[in-house]
Design a binder for these strands. Sequence first.
DNA 1: TTGTTAGTTAGCAAGACTTGCAAATTAGAA
DNA 2: TTCTAATTTGCAAGTCTTGCTAACTAACAA
Lengths: 154, 154
Amino acid sequence: MHSPTELAQIFREKQLKLTPQRQLLFGLLHENNAHPSAENLFEVASKQMPGISLRTVYQTLGELAEMGELQLVDVGDGAKRFDPNMGEHHHFVCESCGSIHDVEISSTPKIRGEGAGYEVNEVGVVFHGKCTRCSAATKRSPGHQAKKQVARTK
Amino acid sequence: MHSPTELAQIFREKQLKLTPQRQLLFGLLHENNAHPSAENLFEVASKQMPGISLRTVYQTLGELAEMGELQLVDVGDGAKRFDPNMGEHHHFVCESCGSIHDVEISSTPKIRGEGAGYEVNEVGVVFHGKCTRCSAATKRSPGHQAKKQVARTK
DNA sequence: TTGTTAGTTAGCAAGACTTGCAAATTAGAA
DNA sequence: TTCTAATTTGCAAGTCTTGCTAACTAACAA
Ligand SMILES: [Mn+2]
Ligand SMILES: [Mn+2]
Ligand SMILES: [Zn+2]
Ligand SMILES: [Zn+2]
């Protein structure tokens, strides 16, 4: 999506230094479409850069969001999710395994009735249900519950 | 919505004692359509029942939710909201004043494309924007920002 | 290359919301 | 009135996130 040179450009324009931490996180995020939490990214980042701080992950992701390089997604599970997909889309959350998937809907829902005059700037749609894999697993063995993914493993 | 007798019935059926705390909270919630947080309700309840515990508010609201007497709403502002309106509806959040309004949309959004096969159990739609009052105020005095409502006043 | 400095990172404390726990209290039945 | 299981409280603790600041460093100029 962005070449190393472009990346440098992007940061320079905003008077942001091109630090190793930023480069790493920027890269990790853009190759991750699983809607990771800060903690998730911290774990991955730590492998390539032992010692990186969770605080820096929050800091950097916050900046990238302000720069319009990523979206914050809230699917109601406690932790904010970071999404490099800036296109207009919505989310499906599997209630069995917790996985989060991009989905498109036929058209952005419109408010009807009294509230129709509200000035709408953003529409968030979150579907909850079972992903294909879990749905199939449930039919196969109804009692079974797939282990749920959680943001923090500790 | 519920007469005192019905209320007693509802609780008895579930082997729940009809305590003063439960009666109060049940009543306060059903006359409150502002989507209060636990803290909000705690403040109101405290006036009529000084000494009531915030813990009890959480406890009771959780039970009522399990009983299907109210919905939990997450509009992404940190605190869970409690909603006595069990009808199918969605929410509009004013980004200026924080007020939350019920809205109806033309039809429940449907997933399109690859994800169309997901087993959907719940659809949450949250609109963010400016409520009628704030929208008008902004046009009147563009620089002005209405003071935002917050859950916790402390 | 070296010096300078504004911007950045790391670490830790603390804030916000919520839940776990156990002792004290009480509704409801006998 | 007595008894007991359910409930309420108060407080500690858990989870996610942000505030603060000392130590560090990328970027620029000399
Ligand atoms: Mn997405
Ligand atoms: Mn509502
Ligand atoms: Zn799943
Ligand atoms: Zn408003």
